[in-house]
Design a protein around this nucleic acid. Sequence first.
DNA 1: ATCAATTAAATTGCGCACAATTTAATTGTG
DNA 2: CACAATTAAATTGTGCGCAATTTAATTGAT
Lengths: 139, 139
Amino acid sequence: MKDQLHISEQVCFPVYVFAKEIINQYRPLLTELELTYPQYLVMMVLWEYKEQTVNQLGEKLKLDSGTLTPLLKRMEQKDLVCRTRSTIDERLVHISLTLKGEALKEKASCIPAQLMESMNVSLEDLTNLKNIITKILKQ
Amino acid sequence: MKDQLHISEQVCFPVYVFAKEIINQYRPLLTELELTYPQYLVMMVLWEYKEQTVNQLGEKLKLDSGTLTPLLKRMEQKDLVCRTRSTIDERLVHISLTLKGEALKEKASCIPAQLMESMNVSLEDLTNLKNIITKILKQ
DNA sequence: ATCAATTAAATTGCGCACAATTTAATTGTG
DNA sequence: CACAATTAAATTGTGCGCAATTTAATTGAT
């Protein structure tokens, strides 16, 4: 029987490398906006939904409070988001955009196109990739 | 023009989530062997190549010495690998398996199959996925 | 042979990512 | 109402991942 314990036989390893490579491609673009990739993900959710609790962000981004709490505090330090504990239910912390955070959307608008260019991938491969992965993740 | 700054429109986000999900699927299997996923990758390279310098490992795994040096020290602590500075070229550190590290290959042999099962993906999707990603990474 | 340039690994510092636990508030049940 | 169970966020601790720098050894060009 064939030995499966080789890097070259693995499917997971290319996925792992590819995910890191994507973040590395984003890095120079996001550094200009003083954002990391996970912070950029938070911004995208907030640009779309205006306000989210820590849990809601966590569900959308698949991150827990152990990751999000310190990350959001750093974003608060940079005056990108507000963290406000709910008065109705004091367990909840609402995350919303500051004016600076709202304004950053404009600057970020060119990032998707820039990234597409830097990755140099056909639209076809990209859609196939997305379809397969979302199919796997849905189960 | 359509707003591209939405999580749902992104291709990179599913890749990022998928890569994390893979590592989370590996976690319970690898925890039994007292390995993390990156440590498992190092083991796979060493099971195949017997001995590697830090740089050679880094090239194969796309990791730098800043990541590998402390990781390899932890693996040395667990008596999985030996770190030996070369006498011929003292800049090089050779990483090789201990007997315990060599023996772990046996225990790890079932992991690829177990992971395939826990991921519940068709072989077709998996090969397509791998082909697209390796194609993109090759450029 | 000398010394600048290169190379390899280690170090420093920061930001995730996640398991496990803690703290505090709310809900649900008798 | 009381109080156990649940929920939300924060905290603690460990291990990557990478940029930037440092340390030390080797190479190469004159």
